[in-house]
Design a protein around this nucleic acid. Structure first.
Length: 568
RNA sequence: GGUGGCGUAGCUCAGUUGGUUAGAGCGUGGGAUUCAUAACCCCAAGGUCGGUGGUUCAAUUCCACCCGCCACCA
């Protein structure tokens, strides 16, 4: 038994996430957490909403509510969506909660003591009417190069020139439209990442087990050279900047940059969990207080890799304190909507709340993991979704459970029969099952979700192949004992299939196990070589055929959804 | 613009440390079966492995360039 700390990249507070966000971090981390728990390991699975930053402020303003209220509401919405998808977080926290504030302030202070923080003054655009400094992207004006009238402060979308907002002609606030702007000096804290370059590189060098996507992104940043980054912003919504525990002089109107405090929330959320449940968070995060034997697994989309392989490690390592660093990192590419981007504004794609309106969570979980964007971007299409889900879940798995349990109910009084002895057919089946189990286990351990799903499906197919040959419906006419062997084996296969499917499709798998009366203590990850893997249903046990597990997705459904979600 | 990734059967993807007939699922066609959600099982057809050159006895696999798509950075 080992200990696994698993974190999913934090979903930003700004609205319900779409299927790509789900498939790229929250869902795979959940599948892995479930798998590790089933293996009997001690698992702590943490996620949270990432709530600070300008986009949250702007979204709140647009909604006409204050930021805190907006985040309260959106956090609940996202929490419910997560529950709807059966994401088994041990804690779903909030980066705006006090533990994260304390920790973020702590990290900044120790980094400063270690000479890694520097205060620098820069010139920035201040909007008098908005009463705030404007981030570069929120200043609009006429491009000094091409005269395009809606150039952004950081770049002109028309000619591509890189700009400084101070250079724009007729600048105005993108927030209020006000042109009552001026340039002011403002101080910010800079994290001197450059000083940590060698230590980070050595650490990445040693991380040979990371996937190539993660390492190549880390090396790209390291090769370009780590630049010192401003870790504060002129905003009101965020973590206050302190010095020696008190408000830092000159920084009363500033907060930490969201990318500085967001990853700290992995720890902060663990503290929230500990405070709420009476557990000890230090034994998960402090290597001097029991976290030395923890394997820390991070799951994220590729856009987050640099922050997890470089920026956050700079914070952690730069603190000089014995914090737990990531051991295994799994990065995903994007799920695309018919090859293009998901788009909220153009109503292209499906978001988590909508998805649950049209199909059960298991169906999405299965399809998104069986087609996870692991090696490259993966296209989601409703047609593929329909075909794959109907074939894998309804036809192969669901129908197998249905045919064997109904046959048992009709001919064996819904009781697992004990007669008959196994033949070479069963011997071969056991060997095939053991081989598949070994492969599935390995893929789960490697966090190769696509392969794990494919092999799980292949395991299910073994059941149908077996029944086809064993044909208890034929044998029962001449050799009831032979039929009994087939039914007994079939019931046990159904139970095993469900156990192995628990990480992917927990609801349906649980329904099967409940119907087969498999005791909770038997719902653990099976060892491939163990005969126990096919001894989950006791002889003489009465079973209840579950209802049809998966309703098929009809062509009419696809047509309606295409209309609704803008397919193709 | 720079950097990286990708481009393999109708579709979604594996794979090849360079070497006889390139794989899976879906879809399609045929057969078998009837316990079952017209499901399951078996068989088959389908690809000059993005293009052009190069290295090599041999390249889909290495190299160069080109085209297309994607991401990141500036």
């Amino acid at each position: 038994m080992a200990r696994f700390l698993i974190t999913s990249a934090l979903p930003y507070i700004n609205g319900v996430k779409h299927l790509g966000n789900l498939a790229g971090s929250m869902l795979p981390s959940d599948v892995h957490a479930r798998f590790r728990r089933m293996q009997g390991h001690e698992v702590l699975f943490i996620c949270a909403t990432d709530e600070h930053g300008t986009p949250a402020e702007l979204a709140a303003a647009e909604a006409g509510v204050d930021v805190r209220a907006y985040c309260d509401e959106q956090h609940d919405v996202q929490k419910r969506a997560g529950e709807g998808f059966r994401l088994s977080f041990d804690w779903f926290g909030r980066s705006s909660n006090p533990p994260n504030h304390r920790l973020t302030q702590h990290f900044c202070e120790v980094l400063e003591k270690n000479g890694l923080i520097e205060e620098r003054v820069s010139r920035q655009v201040y909007s008098i009417d908005d009463g705030r400094f404007l981030p570069d992207r929120y200043v609009e004006g006429t491009c000094p190069v091409c005269a395009f009238e809606r150039a952004r402060g950081d770049q002109c979308d028309n000619c591509g020139s890189l700009l400084d907002p101070v250079d724009l002609k007729n600048p105005r606030s993108k927030i209020s439209g006000s042109s009552n702007l001026e340039v002011r000096d403002t101080a910010h804290l800079f994290l001197k990442q450059g000083q940590m370059q060698d230590r980070i590189r050595a650490w990445v060098d040693a991380a040979t087990e990371w996937p190539s996507l993660a390492r190549s992104i880390a090396y790209k940043w390291l090769d370009e050279g780590l630049i010192d980054r401003a870790i504060t912003r002129d905003l009101s919504w965020g973590v206050r900047v302190t010095k020696d525990g008190a408000p830092r002089p000159g920084f009363e109107e500033k907060v930490f940059y969201v990318w500085f405090d967001a990853p700290v929330e992995y720890i902060g959320a663990t503290v929230e969990w500990a405070e709420a449940t009476g557990n000890d968070w230090r034994r998960w995060w402090r290597t001097d207080e029991g976290a030395g034997d923890v394997t820390y697994v991070q799951v994220m989309g590729k856009d987050n890799v640099a922050f997890h392989t470089v920026s956050f490690p700079v914070t952690i390592m730069g603190s000089g304190e014995p914090w737990k660093l990531v051991d295994r990192l799994k990065a995903f590419n994007w799920v695309t909507w018919y090859g293009g981007k998901f788009s909220t504004s153009e109503k292209r794609g499906i978001f988590m709340d909508q998805a649950l309106e049209i199909a059960p969570s298991d169906v999405w979980r299965w399809h998104l993991m069986a087609n996870a964007p692991e090696s490259s971007d993966a296209a989601f299409t409703l047609e593929q979704f329909q075909a794959g889900v109907n074939a894998d879940l309804a036809n192969v798995f669901g129908n197998f459970v249905n045919r064997i349990t109904r046959f048992c109910a009709a001919k064996f009084d819904a009781t697992a029969p004990g007669e008959g002895s196994e033949t070479e057919l069963e011997t071969k089946l056991r060997a095939d099952v053991a081989a598949k189990l070994a492969a599935i286990t390995q893929h789960h351990e490697d966090m190769e979700f696509r392969k794990a799903a494919a092999e799980t499906r292949a395991l299910w197919a073994l059941g149908n192949e077996y029944l086809q040959v064993a044909a208890p419906w034929t044998a029962i006419k001449t050799d009831p004992a032979r039929a009994a062997v087939g039914v007994r084996m079939g019931l046990n296969l159904a139970a095993l299939f469900a156990v192995v499917a628990l990480p992917f499709i927990p609801d349906a798998a649980t329904a099967v196990l409940d119907g087969l009366r498999v005791a909770p203590d038997k719902r653990v990850w099976p060892k491939a070589e163990s005969a126990a893997a096919l001894a989950l249903v006791d002889v003489g046990q009465t079973i209840a055929p579950p209802d049809v597990l998966f309703k098929k997705i009809e062509d009419a459904d696809v047509a309606a959804w295409s209309e609704r979600f803008g397919a193709g």
